[in-house]
Simulated assay, not measured.
Amino acid sequence: MGNTKRDSGDQSQLERFRDLARELEADESEEAFEATVKKIVQAPKPEKTDEE
């Protein structure tokens, strides 16, 4: 509860997350988020097959 000190395991996970975000060129801006959402929304729906 309310621990502000993190274990070394948590810190390394945080660093791995940050490294991956940098590698993927993640962007925290609202404009980038909105642009990504629009791409997803505008994507064509996959055609259904008889198996579904």
Rank of each mutant, 00 (worst) to 15 (best):
Met1Pro: 04
Met1Tyr: 06
Gly2Ala: 07
Gly2Met: 09
Asn3Cys: 14
Asn3Tyr: 09
Asn3Leu: 10
Thr4Tyr: 06
Thr4Val: 11
Lys5Leu: 10
Lys5Asp: 11
Lys5Tyr: 14
Arg6Met: 13
Ser8His: 15
Gly9Ser: 13
Gly9Glu: 13
Gln11Pro: 01
Gln11Ser: 11
Gln11Gly: 04
Ser12Tyr: 05
Gln13Val: 12
Leu14Asp: 02
Glu15Thr: 09
Glu15Phe: 09
Arg16Trp: 01
Arg16Asn: 12
Arg16Gly: 03
Arg16Lys: 15
Phe17Gly: 07
Phe17Lys: 15
Arg18Val: 08
Arg18Thr: 02
Asp19Lys: 15
Asp19Ala: 14
Asp19Cys: 10
Asp19Gly: 13
Leu20Lys: 14
Ala21Asp: 02
Ala21Cys: 12
Ala21Gly: 08
Ala21Pro: 03
Arg22Asn: 11
Arg22Gln: 11
Arg22Leu: 10
Arg22Met: 05
Glu23Asp: 14
Glu23Lys: 14
Glu23Val: 03
Glu23Ala: 08
Leu24Cys: 08
Leu24Thr: 01
Glu25Asp: 06
Glu25Pro: 10
Glu25Thr: 12
Ala26Gln: 02
Ala26Thr: 04
Ala26Gly: 07
Ala26Asp: 04
Ala26Trp: 06
Ala26Phe: 04
Asp27Lys: 04
Asp27Arg: 02
Asp27Phe: 00
Asp27Ser: 11
Glu28Trp: 07
Ser29Cys: 07
Glu30Ser: 05
Glu30Ile: 04
Glu31Asn: 03
Ala32Asn: 00
Ala32Glu: 00
Ala32Asp: 00
Ala32Lys: 00
Ala32Leu: 01
Phe33Arg: 09
Phe33His: 07
Phe33Met: 00
Glu34Asp: 15
Glu34Pro: 08
Glu34Ala: 09
Glu34Lys: 06
Ala35Phe: 03
Ala35Tyr: 03
Ala35His: 06
Thr36Pro: 01
Thr36Gly: 03
Thr36Asp: 08
Thr36Met: 06
Val37Trp: 06
Val37Phe: 13
Val37Cys: 03
Lys38Met: 07
Lys39Ser: 11
Lys39Arg: 13
Lys39Phe: 07
Ile40Pro: 04
Val41Ile: 08
Val41Gln: 05
Val41Gly: 03
Val41Met: 02
Gln42Glu: 15
Gln42Tyr: 15
Gln42His: 11
Gln42Lys: 10
Ala43Val: 04
Ala43His: 07
Ala43Asn: 00
Pro44Lys: 03
Lys45Ser: 13
Lys45Trp: 02
Lys45Val: 15
Lys45Arg: 09
Pro46Lys: 09
Glu47Val: 15
Lys48Asp: 15
Thr49Glu: 08
Thr49Cys: 13
Thr49Gly: 10
Asp50Glu: 15
Asp50Ser: 15
Glu51Ala: 13
Glu51Pro: 02
Glu52Gln: 11
